[in-house]
Each structure stands twice: as C-alpha cells, then as structure tokens.
Design a protein around this nucleic acid. Structure first.
Lengths: 186, 186
DNA sequence: TTAATCATGTAACACGTTACATGATTGC
DNA sequence: GCAATCATGTAACGTGTTACATGATTAA
C-alpha cells in the first residue's frame, strides 16, 4: 500500500490534481518508489472509494478540465496509523529485487565482452541516476521552506542520505567488478 | 521476466522438480530476487507452454508424485539471448522500491519515539539479513565445486559482493540516522 | 512545423501475494 | 502425539506495466 500512502502524504501538504501529484511524486519520491501516471490515477480512484480523499471537478475554458483531490479526515487517520506499523515493509526493506543481478549471477554463460558491457552499462546508469538524486535534492530544497516545521525536512534529508549511500555503494561495486573482469582478459 | 530466466538458469545446472527449484532459488538467488512457491509453479507452467522446458511425471509409492523439469534447446537459447540484453533492467537497476523509505519520508508526521522505533526495527532486520547472505555464501560454496569452470563461481561471488556492499551501506545509514534522532530528543 | 506541456483517463496484460487444500512419512 | 518435511497445486486478489486516445496551447 506504499503508493497509496505516498499519495496521501503528498496531499497532506495541500490539495492537488492528479497531474500535479504525478509530478510531485516523480520529483521527490521517485528515487525510492516509481509509479506510472496511469497507475496514480487508478489509485486515486480507489482511494476515493475508500473515503481517504474527495475530488472536485474544475471546469476550465482555456485548459482541459481538471480534478482536484483533497485528503479527508479518514485519509489522515489512515496515514497516521500506517506510518508507524511497518511489519511487512521492514521485512523486505533489505530485499533488493534486481533483474540486473540475475544477469550477473548467470554471467558465466556470457563472454567476458558481454559481461563487461553489462557492468559498464550499469556504471553508466549509476552516474546518470546521480541526476535524479540531485533533482530530488533540489525539489526538497524548493518545497522545504513551505513546510512550517523543519523536522519534516530532516526526514526528507534522511531518505536522501539513504539514496546517496546506496548510490555510492553501487558505483564502487561497479568499478571494482569492472576492474576485476578487465584484468581477467586483457 | 527475471524470475523465468532465473529458473532457466538454475535448470541449466541440471533437471529439477518444482520443489527443488524452489529451494535452490531461495537458498541462492533470494537475496536479490524473492519468489513465492506458488508463483514458481505458475511460472514453470507458463514456461512449459512456451517450450522453454519439458516436464516428466514421476510416480512414487512412498512419497507424493513429482514432476521433473528439464530445460530444452529453445529454453537455452532464450536464456542465452536474454542475458546480455538488459535494456529495461539496467534502467531500474539503481531504482530502489522501498515502503520503508516511504515511511521515513513522512516521518515528520510521527513522534520521535515512533520514528526511532522504525529505524531500530530496520537496523534489527539489517543484522538478521546478514544471515541470509551467509546462507547464500554457504550455498554457493556447496554448489561451486559442482560447476566445472570456476568462472561461474566468480560471477556468483560478484553478486554476493553486491549484497554485502548494500548491506553495509544500509547498516551504516541506520546507525547514523538513529544517532541523529537520539541526539535530537534525549 | 514539430514537439512539449496541460490533463485526463481505459484496457489488457504481467507479475506478485495471500490463503487454502491434500496426505503420507519422518524425527522429537 | 505433534510438527516438520516432501510435493503439488488452485483461486482470488493486488499491484505494476504497456499501449493507446483526446485535443488545445505554447515554445523552439
């Protein structure tokens, strides 16, 4: 239920349209949770059915009509109860699920060239995803002042620190593994 | 398709029953890919439909009947083609999907006590999941000698190194974050 | 003139999770 | 006597992905 609760969390900061939620989600939460636009709309629909939020249609003449979502008291209570009861999530918090590692595991079936190409592509992605983290950093710096208590911002920074630590670990692993394969076959 | 290809990979080492595959998967691949027993049976079924493997029923009088799966040439080709073409997987190789971090991100809505409890539960899981890594290490040490070329074992160890690096990063992050919250409110 | 942005979705499919069922044998 | 292991699944549900559709406005 993390996606639903992520959306609830964002709506606590203010009412938004699906489109705005999608952008807010992608700019600030997407480095630890990815969601497609179409899925966000579906979830919002389901959440309205549960009474966690209400929506109002806004008719516009210049732009397409839109729908503004507002969190309800039921929704706030739901979020409040969900936050400190992470039984399941903690269980697989350490659990990676990586198709990439699946390929590495069976790397023995590939040539050294192919395996190296795989690892180099991974390293490239690592470097690129640095940008996503920096973007999240900027987004938080932008929205941070809008939140009254700076305690909120501290938790945001904690997740950023997590992202950075894992990013660093991935990059270092890639460098070492590439070096290892390179000295295998010159 | 990583689960299907993981199963194909295991079947390259030898024919196995669903039950054995489930155990092999859980002991060696589960630290980077988790799958439920029921899902494995469903996937095996689908894979047989694609012609990637064939199964033979074995009737036993002492124990329940079983079904032995064998990879076909089509399956071997499929695996061989899949391994070095990771476009999609590389794209989200760096992408964590963590319900735990979702909770941390909105930690400002919790009390310091609750947030600390969350982080301490995470640290505890970290320490426990060390065992899963060690188990994977043992499993690889056990199966390693059975594989003719030790190149295979090298890739296994690479994935283990990845697991260890990320484990370490997670633990360090947890320690720091806990310390940070503790000095906030004594 | 082409692409991007605004703003909304639907449909189908793939993959993952939970709960349940069966029934013998082996070890404490 | 009770739990665990062996060995197989089915059914329902929840979540994530892909492909597609609409149609105006604004910036390169």
């Amino acid at each position: 239920m993390s996606l639903k609760h992520g959306l609830l969390g964002l709506l606590q900061y203010g009412s938004m349209t699906g489109y705005e939620l999608d952008k807010a989600f992608k700019s600030s939460l997407s480095f630890f949770w990815q969601a497609k636009t179409s899925q966000i709309y579906r979830e919002l629909d389901a959440m309205e059915g549960k009474g966690w939020l209400i929506s109002q249609r806004i008719f516009q003449q210049e732009k397409p009509n839109k729908r503004v979502y507002t969190i309800t008291d039921v929704g706030k209570r739901e979020l409040r109860n969900w936050l400190p009861s992470p039984e399941g999530d903690i269980a697989d918090a350490m659990g990676v699920r990586s198709g990439f590692l699946m390929r590495v595991f069976f790397g023995g079936e590939m040539s050294n060239q192919e395996a190296l190409a795989l690892l180099r592509a991974y390293r490239k992605k690592c470097l690129e995803s640095r940008d996503a983290l920096l973007a999240a950093h900027d987004a938080m710096a932008e929205y941070g002042p809008m939140v009254k208590d700076d305690r909120t911002a501290k938790f945001w920074n904690m997740t950023l620190a997590y992202g950075e630590a894992f990013h660093r670990a991935g990059l270092e692993w890639a460098e070492q593994s590439i070096a290892f394969l390179e000295e295998e076959q010159p």
